[in-house]
Design a binder for these strands. Structure first.
Length: 424
DNA sequence: TCTGGGGTCCTAGGACCC
DNA sequence: TCTGGGGTCCTAGGACCC
């Protein structure tokens, strides 16, 4: 009984989403920028062809952008998240066995379909997503997830494949691996690619034919799994119900440097509230909280980075509680006179919210907190985020520490309420 | 002026126990 | 003063992914 996986991957996902609602941009170069419009995180094919690289700082490529009339957007995660959900909904009409691997990639277990004409089936998936949503995807099918990744990549690159590639025939697998550079193998990062190359292992094919003993000795058990997957031996199953997160982190770089404690606290409190919201969404409570601050490592100014972890007396997912300890932590690491660039809040040691053990020395009324947060979440669901918040998150509309998002597209598919509010 | 954010998994080494 | 070895738990840090 051999296994069979499909990897469905949206092409240039963020750029494609931006283009959906601006059909005039079809065929034109488009890039999407990271938070604070810092660097390029997505490119349309035309932008790639112009030599724009992933991670290129925006300010360094301004000239190229103007010269070739490249269209650029601030990242609009509301839009991408919504489109992502719709893609997955479409994929689930093919099989319930879908692993949402990232915002633009899903694995499908096609084990039950191996007697179908896979070529036809894969193309049907691709065409259906395009018909329903207008988003182009590529489909790679193979006996393991690692091979499906490679099939998908070849499907994207090869004109002949035209977006769909079935990699099940042993001869085709070998040929595919020969055409895959070592750094393009899933699980081989920059460090290992460099290391393996020094031993002449420069392709997926050569990696596949390296002995287990050598891999174990020089690499890791993780790499060994990758090698086995290249040989067609599945080491990773579909994860349909993802495990609850073990840590949740919310952090941002500031639009402008921040010096005052008050502003830093506004930002950190907002991130703590965001963590609390994410905790409630997965029905967890945190037993520890960590707050960090850092200055701009690229700037020629005095540098300072520090963090403080606090073990909470009672596990919680309340905005108020987490903000209280965020403030304590921040007070203990804040030093005046520095230009802070970033702060963040990480909640750790998460447990199900039904397993919270009360602490006798803790005087907080947790029942009251819980109903307050439920009420707050209801308000948010009804009226949008930040309808109600804790005062130290700040009340000014435009905060100095806010993100720069100067080139934001409208949230076409969500945020109806915002649009209404503006019109009123 | 301007360089992202949010995760996972594994390993090594120290502390501690018996 | 000499002085073993194995197990567990925790933490920090590295590598990777998208």
């Amino acid at each position: 009984m051999t296994s069979l996986f499909a990897l469905v991957d949206c092409n240039n996902f963020y750029a494609s989403c931006e283009r959906l609602f601006r059909p005039g941009l079809n065929g034109k170069p488009v890039v999407v920028l990271s938070n604070n419009d810092g660097c390029v995180i997505a490119r349309s094919q035309e932008a790639k062809d112009l030599g724009i690289k992933m991670g290129d700082p925006f300010f360094l490529i301004r000239e190229v952008i103007q010269q070739h009339n490249i269209h650029y957007f601030s990242s609009n995660y509301e839009l991408y998240g919504d489109m992502s959900t719709r893609v997955v909904d479409t994929l689930r009409t093919f099989t319930p066995h879908v692993e949402v691997h990232s915002v633009d990639e899903s694995f499908l277990d096609l084990g039950e379909f191996k007697f179908l004409d896979l070529e036809v089936y894969a193309r049907h998936i691709k065409d259906t997503v395009y018909q329903n949503l207008g988003l182009p995807v590529c489909v790679g099918v193979a006996p393991t997830k690692t091979l499906a990744k490679i099939a998908n990549r070849l499907a994207k690159k090869s004109k002949k494949a035209d977006g769909c590639l079935i990699l099940t025939d042993p001869y085709h697998i070998e040929e595919g691996l020969k055409r895959t550079a070592i750094e393009d193998v899933w699980g081989v990062g920059r460090q290992y690619a460099k290391f393996l190359s020094t031993y002449g292992i420069t392709t997926a094919y050569k990696l596949k034919h390296t002995t287990d003993a050598w891999i174990k000795k020089h690499c890791s058990v993780v790499m060994l799994r990758t090698v086995k997957e290249l040989r067609g031996e599945p080491c990773s199953d579909l994860e349909i119900n993802p495990a609850l997160k073990q840590n949740i982190c919310t952090s941002r770089s500031f639009g402008k440097p921040v010096e005052s404690f008050e502003e830093l606290l506004e930002a950190a409190s907002s991130y703590a509230a965001k963590c609390a919201f994410k905790l409630r969404k997965q029905k967890s409570c945190a037993k520890e909280i960590m707050v960090f601050v850092m200055t701009n490592r690229f700037a020629d100014t005095p540098q300072y980075t520090n963090s403080r972890k606090i073990v909470l007396p009672t596990a919680t997912n309340s905005d108020l509680e987490l903000i209280r300890y965020t403030k304590l932590a921040l007070e203990s690491i804040y030093k005046p006179g520095y230009q802070y660039k970033k702060t963040g809040v990480i909640v750790m040691d998460l447990i199900p919210d039904t397993n919270v053990q009360l602490n006798l020395l803790d005087s907080t009324d947790h029942g009251k907190q819980q109903s307050l947060m439920q009420f707050l979440d209801d308000l948010t669901a009804k009226f949008g985020k930040d309808t109600v918040k804790v005062a130290c998150q700040g009340t000014q509309q435009k905060k100095t520490w806010n993100l720069n998002r100067d080139y934001l597209s409208p949230c076409y598919t969500t945020r109806l309420l915002d649009i209404l509010t503006i019109q009123i």
